[in-house]
Design a protein around this nucleic acid. Structure first.
Length: 598
RNA sequence: GGGGUCGUAGUUCAGCCCGGUUAGAACGCCGGCCUGUCACGUCGGAAGUCGUGGGUUCAAAUCCCAUCGGCCCCGCCA
């Protein structure tokens, strides 16, 4: 490597006057001082061009050996990702050398002085262009990955989204309050991340899955309106849109009706989109009861960017001779269908694969029929009589050339399965309008559902959700029919946020706990602080929480959470850059009174 | 816990099915030449535990088994 002067100075030899990527034609004639990374270097033997990059973009530097030999020597020695400080004059590029692709393409910097502030090893992967390297490598060298324009853009949009949220909440009287990260483990919900207490051997803190209880207590504490950009932790398996550690915009207010929360949340979302994407989103959002969403879309977070609604064929087949369907009806179960327009053709093999998927995953059978000019075709067509064909065709709105997919079974199982088929078909036939933003609220969730695994009622939302007042009477007799004052905000088939009006009465809270199988003594042991708080004049209150990371994914147009987090973890919850989680020194464990069993 | 998929120069990938020369290409890297490039050009060069371990075979990047890791999904995630 040839010679260069490396300034081992802890601060640059001169202050920066501008960001590289911010210079424009209007700056022509100015003397500027810049710092930045070498993005690319084009060496013509004597003339050398360097594209210098900082967070705002790149600008072209020109080094002419006849003008300044020292600066030129620096350019000769410089390599990709060297951090340089330069001084020079901004000049308009001569005609024919303008680069229309670059915002800075009308000008360049004629460099008079240059210093290498820090050389760099050759980067392990190229930093220009959209993700060239495998994520494995990008995560290990995250600091290099973060220099890429895409990551710079994503994290800044995320920042703008949060600014939008804060601006709205601040303007509407919400007070930002921090809650502890070291909290207590509570039953229900996801697995907790635990932190041992050194001064209380054998005891553990839990990292909060969300600040749920604390924000309720802040309402009891009289703050009236609270918000927080809160870190949350859940020790569950990861997905493309799930990390063990994530952020939510957590909001609680005193005395709201659900509509008040909706209006506020829509205002905040509008502010987010204005700040992050300069888009005006249409308001108010559609509201859809949970039951309707399940009936029409087979999902509590329906994607409304396309139609293809489910068809309830139960009545249409009421007189069927087809054994499978007849048995279904005899059990009181349901038959649902999905009518694929003739333009969306599936091969026999694709249909078989779909059927196989349902059998293995859901142990449900898929029946299908193609509506031809000479009647129904398909393996089950011969079992389906003329009358049923007419009624089914009417119920499903079938025309010639269409394909009807049918699934029979318990309603609670069949609807989500067909809902999933609906999404698969949307992906296969590219039915989604990529530019649409389809917001809606899902309301009137059930309060409870029955858990086969635990053989008891569990909360659909969380145990602090208030029942609808008119459904209070159902609590003891038919708790599964009781609806909750709960709501989810859904955007393009993704849950953006959810919340509820909370129970603010200790007796009602104890009743709900009891229905969940949490007896009075256990409730007092584990949630005594909440029950006590409710007993001291707790005001009615309710709120909502939004997934910051999911919002960031939407405004950035990416489908991986890792693209909108600075330091995400892999699917095994590992940080490949730092090596966390790591083994711990035995001495440290001893201090914590912990012995590793493995 | 389970299913799928990928793992070969620094990077992106080909080769793997059907075992058999010295494991290739592009980008990057190193060196030479080059005064208007912007993915500069051009000439030359270096660069590989084929993820790891075991097995089958005269012979394994290639076939088999196990294992580790990345990604996607199911379960799980109020």
């Amino acid at each position: 490597m040839s010679e260069y002067r490396q300034a081992l100075m802890p601060v640059p030899p001169w202050r920066r006057t501008d960001y590289c990527g911010a210079l424009r034609a209007g700056d022509a004639g100015r003397e500027v001082a810049l710092w930045g990374w070498v993005a690319t270097r084009r060496d013509h033997g004597s003339l050398i061009f360097i594209d210098l990059r900082d967070r705002e973009g790149i600008v072209q530097l020109v080094f002419n050996p006849e003008r300044d030999a020292d600066a030129h020597a620096v350019a000769q020695a410089a390599r990709a990702e060297f951090y340089l400080a330069v001084k020079g004059r901004v000049v308009r590029r001569s005609e024919g050398t303008v680069n229309a692709e670059l915002p800075t393409g009308e000008i360049e910097i004629v460099v008079a002085v240059a210093e290498v502030l820090n050389p760099s090893q050759p980067p392990p992967f190229p930093l220009a262009g959209p993700d060239g390297a495998a994520e494995e490598v990008r995560l290990k060298y995250r600091y290099l990955d973060l220099r890429r324009a895409e990551m710079q853009r994503n994290l800044r949009r995320r920042h703008q989204a949060l600014r939008g949220a804060r601006a709205y909440l601040d303007a509407n009287g919400f007070i930002e309050i921090e809650t502890p990260i070291l909290f207590r483990a509570t039953p229900e919900g996801a697995r907790d991340y635990l932190v041992p207490s050194r001064v209380n051997p054998g005891r553990f803190y839990a990292l909060p899955q969300s600040p749920q209880l604390l924000k309720q207590i802040l309402m009891v504490g009289g703050f009236d309106r609270y918000y927080q950009i809160a870190r949350c932790f859940r020790d569950e398996d990861l997905r493309a849109n799930r990390q063990p550690e994530f952020s939510q915009i957590d909001i609680e207010m005193t005395g709201p009706r659900p509509e008040d929360i909706h209006e506020m949340a829509e205002g905040m979302m509008a502010s987010i989109y204005e700040y992050a994407a300069e888009i005006q989103i249409p308001r108010p959002f559609l509201k859809m009861p949970y039951e309707e969403a399940m009936e029409r879309y087979g999902s509590d977070k329906p994607d409304l960017r396309f139609g293809l609604e489910l068809k309830n064929l139960t009545d249409a087949f009421s007189g069927t001779q087809f054994k499978v369907f007849a048995e279904t009806l005899a059990r009181g179960d349901a038959i649902y269908g999905l009518a694929l327009p003739g333009a969306y053709q599936l091969s026999r093999r694709e249909l078989d694969e779909l059927a196989e998927g349902l059998r293995t995953r859901q142990s449900l059978g898929l029946a299908w029929a193609k509506i031809g000019s000479d009647g129904w075709q398909g393996p089950v067509a011969k079992f389906i009589g003329a009358d049923e064909r007419v009624s089914a065709a009417a119920a499903a709105g079938l025309s010639e050339g269409d394909t009807l997919l049918m699934v029979a079974g318990p309603r609670g199982k069949v609807r989500p399965v067909i809902g999933d088929l609906r999404l698969q078909m949307a992906a296969k036939f590219a039915l989604r309008d990529a530019t649409a933003l389809k917001f809606l609220w899902i309301v009137d969730f059930p309060l409870f559902e029955y858990s086969e695994e635990e053989k008891r009622l569990v909360s659909v939302n969380h145990p602090f959700t208030a029942p609808r007042p008119e459904d209070l009477a159902l609590l003891d007799a038919e708790p599964l029919k009781a609806r909750a004052l709960a709501y989810d905000m859904v955007l393009n088939g993704q849950e953006m946020g959810g919340g509820s009006i909370r129970i603010h009465n200790a007796e009602l809270q104890l009743r709900v706990f009891a229905l969940l199988g949490i007896e009075r003594a256990e409730a007092i042991a584990k949630f005594g602080f909440l029950l006590d708080a409710l007993a001291f004049g707790a005001p009615p209150h309710g709120g909502i929480a939004f997934g910051v990371d999911r919002i960031a994914m939407m405004v950035c147009g990416t489908d991986s959470l890792r693209d909108v987090m600075a330091f995400p973890k892999t699917q095994k919850a590992v940080d490949t850059m730092s090596g966390a989680p790591s083994e711990i020194d035995p001495r440290q464990l001893r201090e914590l009174s912990i012995r590793v069993a493995r």
